[in-house]
Amino acid sequence: MSPKRFLMEFAVVMVVYILCVVVSSSFVRSMPDGAARIALALLPVIPMIAMAVSIIRRLNAMDEMGRKIQLDALAVAFVCTALTTFSYGFLETAGFPRLSAFMVWPIMGGVWCVATIIGTRRYE
């Protein structure tokens, strides 16, 4: 998969994801408890699965250097996210406000992007 095609596919999936989040968050609280409410709450997971498949396909299409850069970036993202969330967990015991688990992916994704940019520039 070419980088251009990946970016287009990723952008489309992100738009669908955002729409699913808006629909889900707009209506889930007004629904009665039950299977339909659970399904609506999980609606954004469907495009997230498509996003994961797209990312894995892109990784599989990369050459060895691209894979090394991504592995390094993912390792940095994993470690930074683990340290950040673990540290904040201790701060919560000191009275800091509780944060949602929704914060994990933005931290990991952001660090992954920055580490990928740095890794790519390092090998240019």
Results as ranks from 00 to 15, higher is better:
residue 16 V to T: 03
residue 16 V to S: 00
residue 18 I to Y: 12
residue 19 L to V: 08
residue 19 L to C: 15
residue 19 L to Q: 13
residue 20 C to F: 11
residue 20 C to W: 02
residue 22 V to N: 08
residue 22 V to L: 10
residue 23 V to G: 07
residue 24 S to I: 01
residue 25 S to A: 09
residue 25 S to L: 14
residue 26 S to F: 05
residue 26 S to Q: 13
residue 26 S to V: 05
residue 27 F to I: 02
residue 27 F to A: 09
residue 27 F to M: 05
residue 27 F to Y: 14
residue 28 V to K: 12
residue 29 R to T: 11
residue 29 R to V: 11
residue 30 S to N: 05
residue 30 S to C: 02
residue 30 S to T: 11
residue 31 M to A: 04
residue 32 P to W: 00
residue 32 P to G: 07
residue 34 G to C: 04
residue 34 G to Q: 03
residue 35 A to K: 08
residue 36 A to H: 07
residue 37 R to Q: 13
residue 37 R to E: 01
residue 38 I to T: 12
residue 39 A to N: 06
residue 39 A to Q: 05
residue 39 A to H: 05
residue 41 A to D: 10
residue 41 A to F: 08
residue 42 L to E: 04
residue 42 L to M: 10
residue 43 L to R: 06
residue 44 P to A: 04
residue 44 P to M: 02
residue 45 V to Y: 08
residue 47 P to A: 01
residue 48 M to F: 03
residue 48 M to L: 14
residue 50 A to I: 09
residue 51 M to T: 05
residue 56 I to C: 13
residue 57 R to E: 02
residue 58 R to Y: 13
residue 59 L to C: 06
residue 60 N to D: 02
residue 62 M to G: 01
residue 63 D to H: 02
residue 63 D to N: 14
residue 64 E to N: 10
residue 65 M to V: 11
residue 65 M to H: 10
residue 65 M to R: 11
residue 65 M to Q: 12
residue 68 K to N: 13
residue 69 I to Q: 01
residue 69 I to V: 15
residue 70 Q to T: 11
residue 70 Q to I: 07
residue 73 A to Q: 06
residue 74 L to N: 12
residue 75 A to S: 15
residue 76 V to S: 03
residue 76 V to K: 14
residue 79 V to W: 07
residue 79 V to A: 14
residue 80 C to S: 10
residue 81 T to P: 15
residue 82 A to K: 12
residue 84 T to P: 03
residue 84 T to D: 07
residue 84 T to W: 08
residue 85 T to Q: 07
residue 85 T to Y: 07
residue 86 F to Q: 03
residue 87 S to K: 09
residue 88 Y to I: 02
